[in-house]
Simulated assay, not measured.
Amino acid sequence: GPVTATDVVNYWQTVFETNGIPEARESSEYIVSFVLGAKTFQSLNSKSLHTPLTTVQQEQIQQLSRKRLERMPVQYVLGEWDFQDLTLKMRPPVFIPRPETEDLVSLVVDEESQKHEKNSGLCFPVPAPHPVILEVGCGSGAIALSLLCRLPQSRVIAVDKEKAAVDLTRENAHRLQLHDRIHILHHEVSYSSAKQLLPWGPIDFIVSNPPYVFHEDMASLDAEILRYENLDALDGGDDGMRVIKTILALAPSLLKNSGSVFLEVDPRHPAMVENWLQAHPNLSLVLHAVHKDFCGKPRFLHIQNQST
Rank of each mutant, 00 (worst) to 15 (best):
V9Q: 12
P202V: 01
I203L: 09
R91E: 15
P73T: 03
G121C: 14
L53F: 03
A279W: 02
P281W: 11
E171H: 13
D103P: 04
L248V: 10
L151I: 14
L185A: 10
R91N: 11
M72P: 03
P199M: 10
T4N: 09
L287C: 10
S33T: 12
Y30M: 13
W81G: 00
I133N: 08
Q153F: 02
P2Q: 01
G137E: 09
R175I: 01
E80D: 12
I143S: 09
A219N: 10
I206Y: 10
I31Q: 13
V8Y: 02
A251P: 03
N19H: 15
S113N: 08
Q196Y: 08
D204H: 14
C149M: 13
A38I: 03
V109F: 07
T101S: 06
P152Y: 12
I184L: 06
D160G: 11
S154T: 01
P131M: 05
N209S: 07
T101A: 01
I303D: 14
E100N: 09
A24C: 11
P131N: 07
I303V: 15
L254R: 04
L176E: 09
F83Q: 06
L168C: 09
F95S: 03
T40A: 07
F300R: 02
P127L: 07
W276S: 12
S113V: 12
V56A: 13
M272L: 00
T14Y: 14
E80V: 00
K115G: 13
G139R: 05
H116M: 09
F300G: 04
H269Y: 05
S113W: 07
W276I: 12
Y228L: 07
E111K: 12
V156D: 08
L36E: 04
D217K: 05
A24N: 11
S46P: 02
A233W: 03
D266N: 15
P92H: 07
S253W: 04
L226P: 05
R155W: 03
V136K: 10
G240E: 00
V132Y: 00
V126R: 07
I303H: 14
V77I: 03
K245P: 03
S220I: 06
R227V: 00
R227I: 08
E29D: 13
K297M: 10
S146G: 12
W200Y: 14
P210I: 05
A173T: 00
K245L: 03
H179G: 09
A142W: 10
S190T: 01
K161H: 09
Q42N: 04
G79P: 03
H215T: 13
F34G: 11
F16R: 01
S27G: 14
L197I: 02
S43A: 15
F214Q: 10
C138K: 01
V159W: 03
G296M: 08
A165R: 13
G296N: 09
L53C: 05
M272W: 05
F95I: 08
G121P: 03
L36M: 14
I182V: 15
Q114E: 10
C138G: 06
G20Y: 09
S43F: 05
T14C: 11
D222F: 01
V159A: 05
S106N: 12
E112H: 04
S284W: 02
E224D: 15
E111P: 00
F95H: 02
T55C: 00
A38K: 10
G121S: 15
T169N: 06
Q306D: 15
V35I: 08
G201I: 05
P129D: 06
K89P: 02
E112A: 01
L255A: 14
C295D: 12
Y191C: 02
E70C: 06
